[in-house]
């Protein structure tokens, strides 16, 4: 544009400022909105009603599990690896430079059990789950689900349901649309979206943007996404965060029924009291090492609590 007039660059400058103003304006608007949402959440909390107000409080409804584990009835025959283990982790190691986040981890999960995955913050729980689910590549060793790497599974969402973070949603998308996107990508029928919404009792709130959801509702939306493919294995990272006692009871009943129905659950948690009431088996990891792999009854009991055992096994041990 060499033959452009002198004021050309001025106009380009004005345009650039307008673009910046637009972006900045959007940023400020969203800041403003989140501040409003926080205020609303605070006042809603004072009134003892869920965030966003109008919808009925979902966690108070009883679990919709009518004896058959809800939506799991049309599940295909429970698959298993040749040796019977649902998950087999062997020598799993993840290094970030000199830091070893997960060190030679070896364990396996059997069907029909709920396994608690415990350890202090930063012990490597989340990294292990990321490696198991193919979001990160191990430095050494392998993590197999039903005999294959997660990424090599055919339609993995029909085998494994996972919730890694409690807030992996676009705040401006409705809960139902979030599930519709995933169902489309997984080639699942739209009816499945309504089934899982029903299962976690989010139906009434499904059309609202996720930013109006309470933390407990987000947890249940994540669980709904994990259940979309009617999987036989559930992997949950800290699912108890943000759940009130009713929601907690609901989750516990749900997981028990899921396992009794032939499902397998791996659930990481740092809420020991909660774990003690829910799991059959415990894996404890500390600084990347597996320090315990035992049935709950073996670890706790005979006068010793899970907390005692945990403290003795991890860095939390004062002695």
């Amino acid at each position: 544009m060499t033959h452009g007039p002198q004021n050309h660059s001025v106009i380009v400058g004005v345009l650039a400022v307008l673009v910046m103003a637009f972006l900045l304006g959007r940023g400020l608007l969203s800041l403003l909105r989140s501040a409003q949402a926080r205020r609303r959440a605070a006042s809603a909390h004072d009134l003892g009603s869920p965030v966003g107000g109008s919808a009925p409080s979902p966690p108070t409804a009883p679990p919709r599990m009518n004896g058959h584990g809800g939506g799991r009835r049309h599940r295909t025959s429970p698959p298993s690896a040749p040796d019977g283990a649902i998950v087999r982790v062997t020598g799993l190691t993840k290094r970030y430079g000199d830091f070893v986040a997960v060190d030679e981890l070896t364990f396996s999960l059997d069907p029909r059990t709920i396994t608690g995955f415990l350890g202090p913050n930063g012990a490597g729980k989340t990294t292990t789950l990321r490696l198991l689910l193919g979001l990160a590549d191990p430095s050494a060793g392998e993590a197999l689900v039903l005999g294959s790497r997660y990424a090599d599974l055919d339609q993995p969402i029909r085998r494994v349901g996972a919730v890694l973070e409690s807030n992996d949603f676009h705040p401006g998308r409705s809960g139902r649309d979030h599930l519709r996107v995933l169902a489309l990508a997984a080639d699942l029928p739209p009816s499945r979206v309504e089934e899982v919404l029903d299962l976690v009792d989010l139906g009434p709130a499904a059309s609202r943007h996720v930013k109006t959801y309470s933390l407990g509702m987000r947890q249940r939306l994540g669980l709904a996404a994990a259940l979309l493919g009617d999987p036989g294995l559930l992997v949950l990272d800290e699912p108890a965060n943000g759940l009130d006692p009713v929601g907690m009871h609901w989750l516990r009943t749900f997981l028990r029924s899921f396992a009794d129905d032939g499902g397998t659950v791996l659930v990481s948690s740092h809420v020991l009291a909660e774990v003690a009431q829910t799991v059959d088996r415990v894996l404890i990891i500390d600084r990347g090492h597996l320090v315990a792999d035992a049935l709950l009854d073996e670890l706790a009991g005979r006068g010793r609590s899970l907390e005692d055992a945990y403290l003795a096994l991890t860095a939390g041990d004062p002695s």
Binding site: L133, Y150, H178
Partner: peptide, 18 residues
């Protein structure tokens, strides 16, 4: 970048790990 920002990349890759 939106999927990174809001974390939806995780569910996306869990459904389609390829």
């Amino acid at each position: 970048t939106g999927e990174i920002r809001y974390g939806t990349i995780r569910p996306t890759l869990l459904v389609t790990p390829r």
